[in-house]
């Protein structure tokens, strides 16, 4: 009796927990499909779903250009970050270097640094060298900011590889670079995929840097475009909801495809 009760109770509890995450999305979806003149959409599935809201929001906020900006930034940052983190993580994880500990600590300190602490000088320095309002203004700091986690992540991956594997390759006369590309990288694919996904997500979601370092509206990224869309269309809930769904769609789709990598990546990244 007691067991059944506790089972029902605990299932109900988990259901509530899941519902509290899902319901905001359903509300958003239903709002996005209301006629765009609806000031206060009711919480109900619209009788006549207005899929055209997505098209309207798409053109009103110029999402084509916003998404292009975000995509360019993310697709340039991710390879840079992956290559740099792999090289550095390889050296940190397998090679001998005096001061490695201190150097590693120097990188790891970056994990605690908030973007607020670097964005002001970045703005003024980039302005004086003409990088403001170019994609590099966001790409370069993001690549730098991804280093702490990336090195940390790749280092622990390379450390976990049995030394004998490396030594055997070296015995065969392989250079350190060949050891990396032919022996280690094949085993590193899962780690790289996960790191790449996380970096992509962080680049796509970045707001503060994009807001401050890209002032030109035609350069805006999806999140910062959404931030200004709110100011202009804050009262047009259906359009705003449609815009929000457009901005989160790429990242949510990636998440559903690669959920294992996302979850395990963020958990292990935190624990390691």
């Amino acid at each position: 009796m007691n067991r059944v009760a506790s089972r029902v109770l605990s299932n109900a509890f988990l259901l509530i927990a899941a519902a509290s995450v899902v319901i905001p999305f359903l509300a958003l979806m239903s709002a996005a499909l209301q006629p765009s003149s609806t000031l206060a959409p009711r919480l109900e599935w619209p009788s006549d779903p207005q899929w055209s809201n997505f098209a309207e929001a798409w053109t009103a906020a110029g999402f084509a250009s916003l998404i292009r900006s975000s995509a360019i930034i993310a697709l340039v940052v991710v390879p840079i970050a992956l290559i740099c983190a792999t090289l550095a993580g390889y050296a940190m994880g397998t090679m001998r270097l005096r001061g490695k500990g201190a150097l590693f600590a120097f990188f790891i300190a970056g994990l605690t640094l908030p973007y607020e602490a670097i964005v002001i000088p970045l703005y003024f320095d980039f302005r004086s060298i003409g990088l403001i309002d170019t994609y590099w203004a966001v790409i370069l700091p993001l690549a730098g900011a991804f280093m702490p986690f990336g090195i940390f992540w790749m280092r622990s991956h390379f450390e976990a590889i049995p030394r004998e594997l490396i030594e055997a390759a070296e015995l065969d006369g392989a250079s350190s670079f060949r050891v990396l590309t032919q022996v280690l990288l094949p085993t590193a694919r899962p780690a790289l995929v996960t790191l790449g996904l996380l970096n992509f997500m962080w680049a796509w979601n970045q707001f503060l840097l994009a807001l401050i370092l890209l002032r030109d509206p035609s350069m805006r990224t999806a999140p910062s475009g959404l931030g200004t869309f709110v100011q202009q269309y804050g009262e047009n809930i259906p359009l705003l909801a449609a815009g929000t769904l457009i901005v989160i769609a790429p990242i949510v789709i990636l998440y559903f495809i690669f959920q294992r990598q996302f979850i395990s990546g963020m958990l292990q990244g935190a624990i390691k």
């Binding site: 840079i80 290559i83 740099c84 983190a85 090289l87 550095a88 390889y90 050296a91 940190m92 090679m95 001998r96 270097l97 490695k100 150097l103 120097f106 990188f107 970056g110 640094l113 602490a117 670097i118 964005v119 000088p121 970045l122 320095d125 370069l140 700091p141 690549a143 730098g144 900011a145 280093m147 702490p148 990336g150 090195i151 350190s176």
Partner: peptide
Amino acid sequence: TALLYILPAFVFYGLFVAAPW
């Protein structure tokens, strides 16, 4: 050799995170 491998990461991190900080 190790420093050479670490260099690219160090440049990005140093120039665009540590220096602005």
